[in-house]
Structure formats: structure tokens, C-alpha cells
Design a protein around this nucleic acid. Structure first.
Length: 294
DNA sequence: CCCGTAACGGTTGAT
DNA sequence: TCATCAACCGTTACG
């Protein structure tokens, strides 16, 4: 369930334990960093732990995406019962068959595609552990046959509404084993660790859906867009503080198609820049940089 | 002081 | 329907 209010960290920021920060804040972190603001200052301004700022920035640098990784779920198994069944069949038909031959056959027969075909070593293990002493667990297989050759299409459904196309394009999967990351290609088939399906990325769904009538109030908008994880009660969202800012731009997808860098500086002039309550930071008078940046 | 990262307690979601 | 489990989360604290 989701806590309407999160906990408060040492910096006075609100967070929900176990859940990702709202996209609006993640975005803000990246933007500020691109403006040249130091991570420690970003941390203080947004009241997000420096560890988190560091992590988000590192991820952004590496993948080009500000989105959190896919949470939950199980890694899709390549050795599905169906696959095992086929392997057993091959083995029974040709006891001398090599694992790599089985692998080729799985591909040739369309049982698997190049993204989910088991490795030769996995096949060997299957032969050893499951087929070797196969008594008859066939019924086990039969249940769940419907598993269509697992399409890596959308394993996850994060509803992160992150409208920005760039993210989509730029988002490379962390280390998709075997998936050639085609930068810029929307079609990138995702495999496990990745996280966002194209639709999710592009999917503005949650935004549009939730704002049927046009211009949503800022607050609702933000909560909708920043989202899912924080179905924040509309107005009391712990993150309200930041609401003004990003909303417009997140929604406006204004950022990025500039083609060049994903986050062009101009974005920063985001209105409001608002409301950063944090602004008081300025009062500390310490660094004007930060203040000015806002 | 800054920053990377491990430990920690937590949530999520496919199986 | 419920439990399990492995993935991720952000904060904290340490180096």
C-alpha cells in the first residue's frame, strides 16, 4: 500500500521507502547537473540524499535514462517448460545430439528466438538435470504451454509516464545481455534488465488518461505524471513542493527533441523554477550558484 | 567537504 | 489465492 506520506530524510526531504523518487525530481536532478551544479548542491536543494543523486546521475550517464529500473517480477526464464519439452524431444529422437545442435534447433523450429534461446550451458544443464532422469513429468510441462515464445516485448509495465521521446531513444538497457543496443531505435527489443517498454516510455498514457479534460491542475498533473508510485493524494503530495516546475515540462515534452543533448539547457528556464522552497537556501548565502540556477 | 558505494529495510510483481 | 523470491528503491553511514 502506499503511504500517503513518506518519511523524511536527514535533509528534510520526503521519500517513500522502497519506492522510486518521482520522475519530476529525477528529472530535476539531471537538469541541475547539466547546468553544472554540483551533486552535493543538488542534493541539498532537492533534499534528496547524495547517494541517490549520485546513483541517478550515474545511471543517467550510463543509460541516458532518468527512469528507475524495473522493480519486481521475475526474470523471464528461458528454460520454460515448453523449451524443456522440446529439448527432451530432440534428445529422445537423437540421443547423441549436442547441446549446440539443440540450441540451433530451438531457433530453427521457432521455439525460441535469439533473445530467449537458452545458452549451450543451460541446455547442458537441462539435459543433465531434467532430461537425464526424466521420468515423466510431462504433465508438468503441459501446464503452461501457452507460453508463447516469450516475446521480450513488454515484460514490465511500469506506468512511468515519461513522455519524453528521448528517453525512449536514449534509454539503453543497462546491460542487456545480448541485446544490441540500437541507439535511437525505438524498436529495441527489451530483454531483462530493462525496464521500460516502448509504450510505457512513450506512454503518456497515465497522463492523458488521468487528465481527460484537458488542462489538469498543476497538482493533479504532477501527481499523475510523477506518478504511479505515488498516487499521491492530490494535494497533499509530499512532493508538492516541486510540483510546479517539472510538470509543465515533463508534460510538454519540451525537452529534448532538440536532437542534441537530451536535456537542453533551455529547459531550465522553467518557470517557476520555482517554487523551490529550497530556495531559502539562498538565504544561506552560501553559494549563489545554486540559487541562480534556479 | 565531496562523492562512491555497501548495508539496510522496504516494495513490487512474475512465477 | 497466496507465498516465494529476486529485482529495484532511497537513505544512511563509512571510507
Amino acid at each position: 500500500m502506499e503511504p500517503a506520506f513518506g518519511e523524511v530524510n536527514q535533509l528534510g526531504g520526503v521519500f517513500v521507502n522502497g519506492r522510486p523518487l518521482p520522475n519530476a525530481i529525477r528529472l530535476r536532478i539531471v537538469e541541475l547537473a547539466q547546468l553544472g551544479i554540483r551533486p552535493c548542491d543538488i542534493s541539498r536543494q532537492l533534499r534528496v540524499s547524495h547517494g541517490c543523486v549520485s546513483k541517478i546521475l550515474a545511471r543517467y550517464n550510463e543509460t541516458g535514462s532518468i527512469l528507475p529500473g524495473a522493480i519486481g517480477g521475475s526474470k523471464p526464464r528461458v528454460t520454460t517448460p515448453t523449451v524443456v519439452k522440446h529439448i527432451r524431444t530432440y534428445k529422445q529422437r537423437d540421443p547423441g545430439i549436442f547441446a549446440w545442435e539443440i540450441r540451433d534447433r530451438l531457433l530453427a523450429d521457432g521455439v525460441c528466438d535469439k533473445y530467449n534461446v537458452p545458452s549451450v550451458s543451460s541446455i547442458s544443464r537441462i539435459l543433465r538435470n531434467k532430461i537425464g532422469n526424466l521420468a515423466q513429468q510431462s504433465h508438468y510441462d503441459s501446464y503452461k504451454q501457452h507460453q508463447p515464445a516469450p516475446q521480450p516485448a513488454l515484460p514490465y509495465n511500469h506506468i512511468y509516464s515519461y513522455p519524453s521521446p528521448i528517453t525512449a531513444a536514449a534509454a539503453k538497457v543497462p546491460t542487456p545481455p545480448g541485446v544490441p543496443a540500437i541507439p535511437g531505435s525505438v524498436a529495441m527489443p527489451r530483454t531483462w534488465p530493462s525496464s521500460h517498454s516502448v509504450t510505457d516510455i512513450l506512454g503518456i498514457r497515465s497522463i492523458t488518461d488521468q487528465a481527460p479534460n484537458g488542462l489538469p491542475a498543476v497538482s493533479s498533473f504532477v501527481s499523475a505524471s510523477s506518478m504511479a508510485p505515488y498516487p499521491a493524494p492530490a494535494q497533499v503530495s509530499p512532493y508538492m513542493t516541486y510540483s510546479a516546475a517539472p510538470s509543465g515540462y515533463v508534460a510538454g515534452h519540451g525537452w529534448q527533441h532538440t536532437g542534441g543533448t537530451p536535456l537542453s539547457p533551455h529547459n531550465c528556464d522553467i518557470p517557476a523554477s520555482l517554487a523551490f522552497k529550497g530556495m531559502q537556501a539562498a538565504r544561506e548565502g552560501s553559494h549563489s550558484v545554486t540559487a541562480s540556477a534556479l
